[in-house]
Simulated scan of single mutants.
Amino acid sequence: MFFFWKNAFGAHKRMGAQYKKQPIAHRSAEIETPTMRQLPNEAYFRPSCSAVLNNHYTDFSFFTPFNEKSYKEIVIPHSLLRSPRDTVLNYFSILRDAENLVKGKKGGCGTVGMANIPFPIAYKMLSDQYRKKLSYSNYLKSFEGIGRTHLLVLEEVPADRHGTDTFFIELETIEGSDKGVTTFA
């Protein structure tokens, strides 16, 4: 598809795009994190210069077995929970394309990413103890206005006094606004 126009000086200009089918590939947690050079388009879509870390499930077929299931019906595969670091990385990889743009906090046109499909999976990855403190509706509400989540930094910090694995994370989100456009936060 190509578009033609004349610029202010009368010269004809051409702009175009080519459709490429997304390859289907199953990724594992052992894959090395890509750099910005390996993902050149990331530089045009995001303000951060850092490559995103939560890129394990870019193939939407990962979500197919979980479609139209409540969090109570979902069984989390053990492969997502191999280590504390893998669990955090997989959690945010699942949430990457999750969006909960609500009335008054819209952005762009239509649905972003996977809409609400990832939320029950990510919620189920939380510990039973934590889910007792945080209902699913409150969990979903905590993402109101969020259209996309990028994990930029994941660093292990010394374990707390209980020996719990602890991580420092830095996120970049795309958020809806009352102006109908998205912003980065």
Results as ranks from 00 to 15, higher is better:
residue 1 M to H: 02
residue 2 F to V: 08
residue 3 F to M: 02
residue 3 F to C: 10
residue 4 F to C: 02
residue 5 W to Y: 15
residue 9 F to I: 05
residue 10 G to E: 03
residue 10 G to T: 10
residue 14 R to D: 01
residue 16 G to T: 04
residue 20 K to N: 00
residue 23 P to C: 05
residue 23 P to R: 08
residue 24 I to K: 15
residue 26 H to L: 11
residue 27 R to A: 07
residue 30 E to T: 10
residue 36 M to G: 08
residue 39 L to T: 03
residue 39 L to Q: 01
residue 39 L to K: 02
residue 41 N to T: 03
residue 42 E to R: 03
residue 52 V to T: 07
residue 55 N to Q: 08
residue 57 Y to A: 06
residue 59 D to H: 04
residue 61 S to R: 11
residue 62 F to T: 00
residue 68 E to D: 08
residue 69 K to D: 03
residue 69 K to G: 09
residue 69 K to R: 07
residue 73 E to W: 08
residue 77 P to Y: 14
residue 78 H to Q: 12
residue 87 T to K: 14
residue 91 Y to M: 13
residue 91 Y to F: 15
residue 94 I to R: 01
residue 95 L to D: 00
residue 97 D to V: 08
residue 103 K to A: 14
residue 107 G to K: 01
residue 109 C to E: 05
residue 109 C to R: 09
residue 112 V to D: 02
residue 113 G to L: 10
residue 113 G to A: 10
residue 119 F to Y: 15
residue 119 F to N: 00
residue 121 I to Y: 12
residue 122 A to M: 00
residue 124 K to P: 05
residue 129 Q to T: 04
residue 130 Y to S: 07
residue 131 R to N: 06
residue 132 K to F: 13
residue 136 Y to T: 00
residue 138 N to V: 03
residue 143 F to W: 15
residue 148 R to L: 11
residue 149 T to N: 06
residue 150 H to Y: 13
residue 151 L to I: 05
residue 152 L to F: 14
residue 153 V to F: 12
residue 153 V to K: 12
residue 158 P to E: 07
residue 159 A to I: 01
residue 165 D to V: 12
residue 166 T to G: 03
residue 167 F to K: 06
residue 167 F to N: 01
residue 167 F to D: 01
residue 168 F to T: 03
residue 168 F to L: 10
residue 169 I to M: 05
residue 171 L to Y: 04
residue 175 E to H: 10
residue 178 D to V: 05
residue 178 D to G: 10
residue 180 G to L: 05
residue 181 V to T: 04
residue 185 A to N: 11
residue 185 A to Q: 04
